[in-house]
Design a protein around this nucleic acid. Structure first.
Length: 713
DNA sequence: GTAGGGTTAG
């Protein structure tokens, strides 16, 4: 059964009332113009339409080839043609504008994209759903979800399945799976039916997080809903399985493809071969070429690149070079990518002379090197100790240096302690208007920290926030600061007005401190200080209620409850603060006894009791130490007549939250919850670990209702 | 003929 047909047949949803993409297409629902008779010359309007279509196809092809300037030029020509023609200088239609805006946005020229969009509006051309989706995609890529949101609400264009899918894809790409589920809920509320393109990004987000079990569960759910996963969805899964070394499972997935109504494509094999190659199984990867050919699948440029990479990784560099040279005989056009692949391998081996030779070869063949080719050359020169030559190359004509080029050199200078050179290069970047990216900031921050210039590194991080928070950059800085015991600087990070720590930041901070040994009871106060600073000024206060305790707090019977900054206090039924305060001295002595006697079980029971738990509670409950709950969940538990002991630990708890939340909204749950979004398995608690924290990050549920960070003793 | 999910070199 075709997936779309089965989706339509089985999905228990009313027909979408929102506009579909076809609805919004230009003129699709207008009465069709009369078909020209065989000997009637085409009308002016038909000629115009044909012209626009031809220009649009050309623009799309140029955009695909990456020739943006040419796209812009062709569009300008179309406008000129219109102005010179006899149709009163009508502007290009919405499809042509969409192609232009999309091409510019995809190339990272967002400013120009927005300008083109404004020009379209000024010309009186009404945007359609696609125009909106292109802009949403652009905003989502820049993590400007508020702008995307505003656009949807203010544009007046009814969102369609493409709009929601774009938003979901953007959220997933930004790691915001919970929010993506929220959008899915929202589109269901609007009676807009999800497609395989809507679910696949979520599957991918799970896979990217290494949450393959959940990805597979979602795929099973898709099947159940009649929205069958297609080859793209399976490709996402296969990639994750490869990354996880689960090649047997890949084989099984491929074996089952015929019964599951999907057919592996060249991309599937490309992913599989690349996965094998990355895990050192280049031989097996090369063998797959025959399997692929046997299935009648033609290798693409990607395939050849992967194969070349496999050869390089299996110490068959000469074979790779041979393959490059013989590519024409193999009816394969070895382009710049293929050359770059082999040159990268030579670079890793420090063979810069070999790179120079291949560069000459490709130029002789008429293959034009691109920026990446030069970057490989620059890197190889640095590795080969020819950094001065590399530096001079960057200024030579015909070489379009990009941010990667500067990153390579910056890394080299910092690595060798040449701070003055690095600073000069940063100035050149500024002069040439080359914006630093995440990697630049990582290199600079790491370099400065290595020179023990922690203050400058922190300032650099705060500056990086102007282009958005990068968890990678934060990870590097936090690691360095924590290991160097620079608590004041860490505090400064969380003082920045632009910085809004979310649960990922909390998680990272806690993990970093714990890994650096701050989980010991004597030093834990430092993490405590930082968490306090984070809580004081984070926007989570509006959405979250956080309550945490340290081991020592437990021992002393202190409970610090940090309540919502919005003034709405969320009662936490789990903590009986007053009773604890009354019994403080008794508990302190009990704790002392437990410690002295090494009665670990006693401590466990005590912690359990202090949290209103019974000895029969599953271990995960007794180990719980810190939790971060969205208000909605806290509310749900508060509303529940018989609240579960803790909002995590068993899947039925999640089901309960879902039901309660659905009831609160006076409507039935639209989905069946995905079972067991995580497995509550914790390492057994043993005495030597009593002062060590493990941070367990549970996964959000499908509703986005629960996202819990907690420590385990 | 526009948008919305997947693959290469770094």
């Amino acid at each position: 059964m075709a997936s779309s047909a089965s989706a339509a047949a089985l999905l228990p949803l009313p027909s979408p009332s929102c506009s579909s993409s076809e609805d919004s297409d230009d003129g699709k629902h207008l009465p069709s113009p009369p078909a020209p008779e065989a000997n009637t010359p085409p009308t002016q309007q038909q000629k115009r339409r044909r012209l626009e279509r031809d220009y649009n196809v050309a623009m799309k092809a140029l955009a695909l080839a990456g020739d943006l300037d040419e796209v812009v030029a062709v569009f300008a020509e179309l406008k000129r043609t219109a102005a010179d023609g006899g149709d009163g200088g009508a502007p290009p239609n919405v499809l042509c504008y969409n192609t232009l805006v999309n091409a510019l946005a995809e190339a990272g020229r967002e400013g120009e994209a927005l300008k083109a969009f404004d020009e379209m509006l000024a010309s009186g051309v009404a945007p359609n759903a696609s125009s909106q989706n292109i802009l949403i995609k652009m905003h989502a890529r820049r993590s400007e979800f508020d702008l995307a949101w505003e656009l949807i609400h203010k544009s007046g264009v009814e969102p369609d399945v493409g709009t929601y899918s774009t938003l979901i894809a953007g959220l997933c790409r930004a790691g915001k799976i919970v929010e993506a589920w929220g959008v899915l809920d929202w589109m269901l509320e609007k009676n807009c039916r999800p497609m395989v393109q809507t679910y696949t990004p979520i599957v991918q987000a799970y896979c990217r997080d290494g949450r393959i079990v959940e990805a597979k569960l979602l795929m099973a759910e898709m099947e159940r809903l009649g929205c069958l996963p297609n080859v793209v969805t399976y490709n996402v899964l296969i990639r994750a399985l490869c990354d996880d070394d689960k090649f047997d499972e890949v084989e099984q997935v491929l074996m089952e493809s015929s019964t599951k109504d999907w057919k592996p494509s060249t991309v599937t094999y490309n992913i599989y071969m690349n996965g094998l190659c990355k895990k050192g199984k280049a031989k097996e990867a090369l063998e797959l070429l025959d399997v692929m050919l046997g299935e009648g699948l033609e290798p693409t440029a990607y395939t050849w690149s992967i194969l070349l990479n496999c050869l390089c990784h299996s110490s068959r560099l000469l074979d790779a070079i041979y393959l490059l040279e013989r590519s024409t005989e193999l009816k394969w056009y070895a382009g710049v990518v293929a050359y770059n692949t082999v040159m990268s391998s030579l670079c890793e081996m420090g063979k810069w002379r070999g790179i120079m030779k291949l560069l000459t070869d490709m130029i002789k063949k008429g293959i034009e090197p691109n920026t990446r080719t030069f970057n490989i050359l620059i890197r190889s020169l640095c590795v080969g100790g020819k950094s001065s030559l590399a530096k001079s190359l960057i200024h030579s004509q015909g070489f379009a240096a990009n941010v990667v080029t500067y990153n390579i050199l910056l890394h080299w200078f910092y690595y060798h302690g040449k701070l003055a050179e690095a600073n000069r290069l940063i100035s050149v970047m500024e002069e040439k208007n080359i914006a630093p990216d995440e990697v630049t900031y990582t290199i600079i921050i790491d370099g400065l920290c290595r020179e023990r210039k922690f203050d400058a590194a922190t300032a650099c991080f705060l500056k990086s926030l102007t282009s958005g928070l990068s968890m990678d950059v934060l990870t590097v800085l936090l690691n360095r600061l924590v290991y160097a015991d620079k608590i004041w600087e860490i505090n400064r990070i969380f003082d920045g007005k632009d910085f809004v720590p979310d649960h990922h930041v909390f998680d990272l901070t806690i993990r970093t401190f714990c890994r650096a040994g701050y989980c010991h009871y004597r030093t834990f106060y430092k993490l405590n200080l930082i968490l306090d600073a984070m809580l004081k000024r984070n926007s989570l206060c509006a959405h979250y209620t956080m309550e945490y305790q340290t081991v020592e707090d437990h021992a002393l019977g202190n409970t610090q409850a940090h309540m919502s900054g919005s003034g709405v206090e969320m009662p936490i039924p789990l903590v009986k603060r007053n009773r604890m305060r009354r019994n403080r001295s008794r508990k302190r002595s009990r704790m002392k006894v437990a410690r002295r006697t090494g009665a670990n079980e006693g401590i466990q029971r005590w912690i359990g009791r202090s949290r209103g738990l019974t000895a029969a509670s599953p271990p995960v409950h007794r180990h719980c130490h810190c939790c971060l709950l969205p208000t909605a969940t806290a509310k749900a538990f508060y509303l529940s007549p018989s609240p579960p002991l803790l909002p995590f630990g068993a899947s039925h708890s999640f089901a309960k939250v879902c039901t309660i939340e659905a009831k609160a909204r006076n409507k039935p749950a639209t989905h069946s919850p995905l079972p067991k979004p995580y497995s509550p398995t914790l390492p057994p608690c043993s005495l030597p670990q009593k002062h060590r924290f493990n941070v367990v990050h549970t996964q959000p549920t499908w509703t986005g209702a629960t996202d819990v960070v907690f420590f385990a003793l």
